[in-house]
Design a protein around this nucleic acid. Sequence first.
DNA 1: TAGATTGTTAATCGATTAACAATC
DNA 2: TAGATTGTTAATCGATTAACAATC
Lengths: 224, 224
Amino acid sequence: MSEKNFHQHQHDISSAVINRLPRYYRYLRDLLDSGVQRINSAELSRIMGVTASQIRQDFNCFGGFGQQGYGYNIANLYENIGELLGVREGNTAIIVGCGNLGRALAPSRVFSKRGVTLEALFDISPHIVGGSCGGLVVKDMSELESYCNSYKPKIAVLCVPRFAAEETARRLVDAGIVGIWNFTNVEFTKEELGVPVENVHLGDTLMTLCYSLREEKEEEEKNA
Amino acid sequence: MSEKNFHQHQHDISSAVINRLPRYYRYLRDLLDSGVQRINSAELSRIMGVTASQIRQDFNCFGGFGQQGYGYNIANLYENIGELLGVREGNTAIIVGCGNLGRALAPSRVFSKRGVTLEALFDISPHIVGGSCGGLVVKDMSELESYCNSYKPKIAVLCVPRFAAEETARRLVDAGIVGIWNFTNVEFTKEELGVPVENVHLGDTLMTLCYSLREEKEEEEKNA
DNA sequence: TAGATTGTTAATCGATTAACAATC
DNA sequence: TAGATTGTTAATCGATTAACAATC
């Protein structure tokens, strides 16, 4: 890969492409697990329901992952995309707010499958602090700063109630957190917090599902 | 609204627009709660961080929600978008699979806030069946068909382990479920199941966050 | 070498933004 | 009526798809 290509490739990747990477990563993992060694864009396009053109364009944003006349080596491609997605970075995370969602995420493999180590849980409620979840004991929020100072966790999973969202987010950034996985109802931007944020709105997908349901229903009623 | 407009408006709305509706709905709810009565596209654009043009285009896909020289009546707009998103349809849901995620969703307000009533929980494990969660007792999977036959729930929230996903999804559709909110690692399409599906991949947003983290880090290292 | 399939450029398509006429 | 702001058309931009030359 030439110096010229390196710069072209690694910079200004559109978010459309970046948002597709985790999906590629999942499908490649499955292929890997099923023992397939190589694949071409046409075959992958059939499996994933996207065009072969898009697949080749996407992979090419980052430089040659494939080989003409052969296709893509799955293990290699998986590794490369994992690299892009920071799987080898050794990222660490803490969960802040151990309500239902926080306690559901803590024992899940959502972190470890992606190279992220969940290292601590925090909550403010005396009923929850001291309890155990996913093999970790919930710490009191008052310990947050000293903990961050000692262990320098990278990612905070923000699962606090709405009213505490803003204050807690700022506190986390001040404590040295460099990325927020935000499950609160308040949206944050990188511009206001100074660190990358992913706002997750579970309910939004339920609503688009309900939109489709209504559409289907109206379609049926019209045909009846 | 003319007959011509009605047909133009209600059909072939791009998914880009539909996917933005829940976000509008959230912001309008907030404005409503804060007592604001009316808003114009310029102001809403500032609050939401999108262009005023896009807001007007989006709302106009569905016919005139606003009024020239005035703007939009928030209560009215909120109501209209809610209608589109099926909030008034009286949709009902069941959760299938009461692991960590299912048990986190059950007591949450994610359903009721969107006009969906959660009516039953199902699981296969004897340790979980009979237990209570979010005010509902977990039923055994063997009761699924008879339950669906009697109560005709619309939406199934699929939270079963991967290996059971495909079989359970088909079973739900056979039992009369008309929409699947899918949290399993397996993706489904409307084409294969015959009903609308929303595939949720929580981990994908964690990965895009990790992508941003890596980008930031490289940026810093370059500047250092 | 011939065949296969990528990498990449060019063409198309769709979505976003800008501009302004309609109208409240 | 004048001012404000939508609804809507036209222009721009970006993303997707198609095509094919490069090359393994």
